[in-house]
């Protein structure tokens, strides 16, 4: 007797991502930091900022704190980020 094998998988929907244009130079750009709430995430991000500030006079536009490491950045935070910053760094840390 023939039996059918059923496939329980669901493929993830492909999504095209458009990257923001990369700046040619970092000098005097405004930087947003996105920290994921894990220990040392903010510490590492602020150290990076300090380094960028020293080398390229980058200014800190703001620090966005996610709800938790497992949550995505909210649309409102992304909008703020786009309005106030030229570049952003997301940190993980643990």
């Amino acid at each position: 007797m023939d039996f059918a094998l059923f496939d329980p998988t669901i493929p993830a929907q492909p999504e095209s991502i458009h990257y923001a244009p990369r700046p040619k130079r970092l000098n005097n750009l405004k930087l947003a930091l996105i920290e994921n709430t894990k220990y040392n995430s903010k510490t590492i991000l602020l150290k990076l900022f300090k380094e960028l500030e020293d080398r390229y006079q980058v200014q800190l536009a703001g620090v966005i704190r996610k709800q938790s490491a497992g949550h995505p950045v909210t649309a409102a935070d992304l909008e703020t980020c786009a309005k106030t910053a030229d570049i952003a760094i997301a940190g993980i840390g643990d």
Binding site: M1, D2, F3, A4, L5, F6, D7
Partner: peptide, 8 residues
């Protein structure tokens, strides 16, 4: 559904 086959 995947392919049909004949199990023993």
């Amino acid at each position: 559904m995947q392919n049909n086959f004949t199990p023993q």
